[in-house]
Design a protein around this nucleic acid. Structure first.
Length: 659
RNA sequence: GCCGGUAUAGCUCAGCUGGUAGAGCAUCUGAUUUGUAAUCAGAGGGUCGGGGGUUCGAGUCCCUCUGCCGGCACCA
């Protein structure tokens, strides 16, 4: 007999060789029906896999996170079986679970098309209906390789050969005639898979994630415990689409993009640039208060500078190179660049120029830490497939700064930075920030003691700011460890925004030094840091975060004064003037349209306040305020409105000063 | 850069198996003076992304380039 401890703490006895399925049945037939797998001593087990002794057993159903993952994993297998039955010339590779679903990578000469999806889904449902038992088998490595090779599954054979560590058992799952290499666990039968799945998209993906390898065809799908959850998920996706910054950017007249005229660069319109200016002013105030010195450095620098900094060697192919010469000849004649023309490059980052500024004049230890900030406009020739809206562009402006300091100042500076970043993000409404600490890579500059101190310094800094942090071992730059601060867009894509990087190498390469108290010449350490990251990307994320309905202080138009009849025109102008005097961004709508029409239009533009004026308001010197997202109205005197709205429109940092 | 998809009016989209373009909204003009999410009428607007080909004839079929979309790879 074996003793089984259930999640509620109770202990039951079962015959030797009993499986989680027996346990579930003994608790209730309902649970047995809902059971998908089990957690045995914390490890996931198939329902029918015999228990090997006393154990803690928890039955997993579709309600558990693990259960849902199991479903999705099975959905991937059912997909693979369906595809191979329909298209026998297809090889299977891998099919993992991802957020909200799964994918499967197939190798096949002929491309699939999304038009095949309907047929494939029908086949998947058929496999579910057949209710094939899913049977786990343990094979030897040699047998497994041989079997998969024999049936032409070269990728599977390669996985077993290269990827699975020796000694680990090779498990194969069979459903009907079809079988697949898999770690498991799986559902007891294909009939347990709810039909709440849907194939979503088709995409290319490199075999084993390496662009030197061949490209496979990846099918993405989503799978849920029931139809209702699936529908809710699809609705969420639709809602997220409405928040897409590219769509809102156009609809709200914030910016436009023109792939033909300037691929990967943003044309900012007045409204979008108003938001930009608010953010820039805000950041400038925050940096001023933190002891930064704002500077401005050249857009074009001689290639010699980039050679010295090391960028030329490593990133040349992503830099825009400009030959320094005067083209001759008539219009229409091809421009010939002389072979000996000096080359310049648009800056891909600001740091070398900041080191140049640091190097001007003599620096003493008394000058440190020296914090040089710049809203630096950078150009990077990004791979074309990487460009995305205003999130990933070829011209962008960083809220960049470099802190030159002594090694013993690193920790304090890092803490100050993390606190500042956390406070800035909170002002913009971001509460959960993902922080990643990338530690020393295999090939690196500097001694282990220096790395020890640097990594610990960054970790302490994040902790001091009260931010949770995940460590990415070996992901740091060769010159130092780094922190990355990530935000998520409307559809769950993660974007790097803020960053803090320690750099011991660049000051050395470019010869930055200061005079120490003992009169010796010393190298400063350099902290590369950005809070928002790129202005473009940050604004893109803000647009999606607020779905275009910006808080008052950022909103490009804060108030629209809309008239009901032309009788109120003069008063409307006067009211707008008063509100502008109070520092508000105000537009007036005197058009000969019904108030319904005006309210609708400005509501669609997500203007925070519509101030309606008719004869009554004009006579009484009041405004009827209607807030975005509400139907009610509030009648206030002109003076009260100016006071109240300008308070509301005060930037968060200035509010703190006032308070 | 790679794989797949896609490109028609300012925007959203229709245009079946080839017979030289349509709708709604927007714009402009006129009427309407209106009380909180679309007042009515009329007009203008497109070498159907560029180039090449098949055909008597191409928005429609083929090739090619470019952009865009979704992934992959990349992201100092």
């Amino acid at each position: 007999m074996i003793n089984v401890t259930l999640p509620d703490g109770s202990v039951r006895q079962y015959e030797d060789g009993s499986s989680p399925s027996d346990v579930a049945m003994s608790i209730s037939p309902g649970l047995h029906k809902a059971a998908l797998a089990a957690k045995v001593n914390g490890e996931m087990y198939d329902l029918n896999r015999p228990l090997e002794g006393d154990a803690e057993v928890a039955i997993v159903t579709a309600r558990d996170k693990e259960g849902l993952e199991l479903l999705r994993h099975d959905a991937a297998h059912v997909l693979a079986q369906a595809v191979q039955e329909l298209y026998p010339d297809t090889q299977v590779t891998i099919g993992p679970v991802i957020d909200d679903g799964f994918y499967y990578d197939f190798a096949r000469e002929e491309p699939f098309s999304t038009e095949d999806f309907e047929k494939i889904e029908a086949k998947m449902r058929e496999i579910v209906d057949k209710d094939y038992p899913i049977i786990r088998e343990v094979w030897s490595k040699e047998d497994a390789i041989e079997t998969f090779k024999k049936i032409g599954e070269d990728y599977k054979a390669q996985i077993i050969d290269d990827i699975i560590p020796p000694g680990e058992p090779i498990t194969v799952y069979k459903q009907g005639d079809w079988f697949d290499l898999c770690r498991g666990p799986h559902l007891p039968s294909t009939g347990k898979l709810p039909k709440a799945f849907k194939l979503m998209k088709l995409a290319g993906a490199y075999w084993r994630g390496d662009s030197r390898n061949e490209m496979l065809q990846r099918m993405y799908g989503t799978a849920w415990a029931n139809e209702k959850d699936l529908k809710a998920h699809l609705t969420r996706l639709e809602e997220a689409e409405k928040r897409d910054h590219r769509k809102l950017g156009r609809e709200l007249d914030l910016f436009h993009l023109d792939g033909m005229a300037a691929a990967g660069s943003v044309f900012w319109h007045a409204k979008g640039y108003t938001i930009w200016r608010q953010i820039e002013s805000y950041m400038r105030r925050r940096l001023d208060a933190e002891g930064y010195d704002e500077i401005k450095t050249p857009q074009l620098m001689d290639s010699v500078q980039w050679e010295k900094s090391g960028h030329w060697g490593k990133y040349r192919e992503n830099m825009f190179i400009v030959p320094d010469f005067i083209p001759e000849g008539e219009e229409g004649v091809e421009i010939k660049v002389p072979e000996d023309a000096k080359l310049m490059a648009l800056k891909p980052m600001n740091c070398p120029a900041h080191v140049e500024v640091f190097k001007q004049g003599q620096k003493s230890y008394r000058d440190l830490p020296l914090r040089l900030a710049e809203f630096g406009c950078c150009h990077r020739n990004e791979p074309h497939g990487a460009i995305h809206g205003i999130m990933r562009v070829r011209q962008f402006t960083q809220d960049d700064a470099h802190i030159f300091c002594r090694e013993d100042q690193i920790v304090e500076e890092s803490i100050k930075f993390c606190r500042l970043l956390e406070s800035v993000y909170r002002d913009f409404g971001f509460e959960d920030i993902a922080v990643k600490l990338s530690t020393r890579p295999e090939i690196r500059a500097g001694s282990d003691e220096v790395w020890d101190r640097a990594e610990k310094g960054l970790q302490d800094a994040v902790e001091a700011a009260g931010l949770p942090c995940e460590i990415l071992p070996g992901e740091g730059a060769f010159y130092g460890p780094k922190l990355e601060f990530q935000l998520t867009d409307a559809i769950g894509r993660i974007w790097q925004c803020g960053t803090l990087q320690l750099d011991y190498v660049l000051p050395e390469r470019l010869g930055a030094e200061y005079t120490a108290p003992d009169g010796s010449r010393q190298r400063p350490v350099m902290l590369h840091r950005a809070i928002l990251g790129s202005m473009e990307r940050f604004i893109g994320i803000l647009i999606e975060e607020f779905s275009g309905a910006f808080p008052m202080w950022l909103s490009p138009v804060q108030v629209v004064v809309a008239t009901i009849t032309s009788e109120a025109d003069a008063y409307a102008e006067k009211a707008a003037e008063e509100l502008r005097k109070a520092g508000l961004r105000v537009e007036v709508d005197l058009r000969n349209e019904k108030i319904n029409y005006k309210v609708r239009e400005h509501s669609l533009q997500k203007v925070p306040v519509i101030a309606v004026v008719g004869e009554r308001e004009a006579a009484e010197g009041t405004l009827a305020l209607r807030r975005f997202g509400s139907k009610g109205q509030e009648i206030l005197s002109l003076a009260e409105t100016a006071q109240k709205l300008s308070d509301e429109a005060t930037a968060p940092d200035l509010k703190r000063v006032k308070a």
